[in-house]
Design a protein around this nucleic acid. Structure first.
Lengths: 209, 209
DNA sequence: ACGTTATCAGACAGAACTGTCTACGGCAAC
DNA sequence: GTTGCCGTAGACAGTTCTGTCTGATAACGT
């Protein structure tokens, strides 16, 4: 019954203990990095746990299954990316028409970042079957973005806000999707330019006969 | 040493034997279906072998590693999809400008197909690390498409064929990428309409000051 | 008829992955 | 000080995955 029990395998008690409550954050940060860099399936639980520096039991306390971690990851991505889009739009000034074009700056910025690998949601959807929670979360994200852009188009006075929003999201998704192939800033720039054309054409008087 | 050795486990000889030389085709057909439907990692070798109805040894004779099968799959996808794009373009008549718009009919047709799950190449790239053979093959495919569209734009007399081709491929990739989320024919139709706008704008006299 | 070639059947190895469980140590509130 | 709570360490089980190997069997060319 002595502390130095016989069966104990060395029992090294030193471990940079994670402060209470921070374990979850560390796990999420690591998951964000590994899921995005390698994909949902390629990033194994064991690796995430090891690189997080937390114990396995701690991990499973917060995320009972890998799917729960993936969902939390997508939630985080949604917050970050939506924030970047809104910020880019607002940086273009108060005019909704200008914001419709300005939001494409978020794409340029993103594809210049190191380790850029396209849209986390599209990548996630490519790895998840239709109908799963992961897939549904991705669809919901894209619908949110579409609704937001549609609202901007509406406030910009576009005669067909749905159509304009659809065109712009296609362009945005195209830019994001091609990001998984090569992070070409020229593609992002082209997307912005094209968006400018489309917005101008949609708002020009001649488009309303 | 007798033929009816003791250790032999029953040795059931009946099996719908695949005619010589057709095993490879059967494997490829099954791989096409499973890789596209479930993703590269989710589709396991064992499942592909079982559904192909071939023996494991036969499989590994033709495809020494899973990567080889994936590459063959991508090769096949490239042939099919490129063929559909060309066919759709040619169906629009001999005018290159019309072909630039008409090729988007391939997108509409594709997303109406049962089990449509977006672009096999984008999905594959989402699951493969940068620099791998699979990833490189995807990049090459997209470059081929871009070059073909650029050529059409050139022959259509666009003042900036590179820019127009870039815009159109963004649109096409956007339509394909959103296909992994939901196979919405409206998105494909919008892509075609938008392409029409862009082509018209690029070729109108006013665009050349 | 005979030999070569292609295929089938499935056991097996070795690794990786997800998830469970036990045992123990520090920290803070009471 | 004692009592919980939160954390660490890591063994373990059960599955799945890729890839290898053996041996038997059908088809085909000569």
């Amino acid at each position: 019954m002595t502390p130095t029990a016989a069966t104990a395998t060395a029992a090294g008690p030193r471990a940079a203990r994670t402060p209470a409550g921070q374990a979850k954050d560390k796990i999420l940060a690591t998951a964000f990095r590994l899921f995005y860099a390698h994909g949902l399936r390629a990033a194994g639980i064991d690796t995430i746990i090891a690189e997080s520096g937390v114990a396995k039991a701690t991990f499973y306390k917060y995320f009972p299954a890998k799917d729960d971690l993936i969902l939390a990851y997508l939630e985080q991505v949604d917050g970050v990316w939506t924030g970047q889009l809104h910020a880019a739009a607002e940086a273009a000034g108060p005019d909704p028409a200008a914001q419709l074009v300005g939001l494409f700056d978020a794409l340029s910025t993103a594809c210049r970042r190191d380790g850029y690998r396209g849209c986390a949601f599209i990548n996630a959807a490519a790895e998840s079957a239709t109908g799963t929670r992961v897939h549904e979360r991705t669809v919901a994200h894209k619908q949110d973005i579409l609704a937001w852009i549609r609202d901007l188009a509406d406030r910009a006075g576009a005669p067909d806000p749905d159509g304009l929003a659809r065109s712009l999201t296609l362009l945005l998704d195209g830019g994001l999707a091609s990001g998984v192939l090569d992070a070409d800033p020229a593609a992002a720039a082209a997307a912005r330019t094209t968006a400018g054309q489309l917005v101008a054409a949609a708002l020009s008087p001649s488009s309303a006969p």
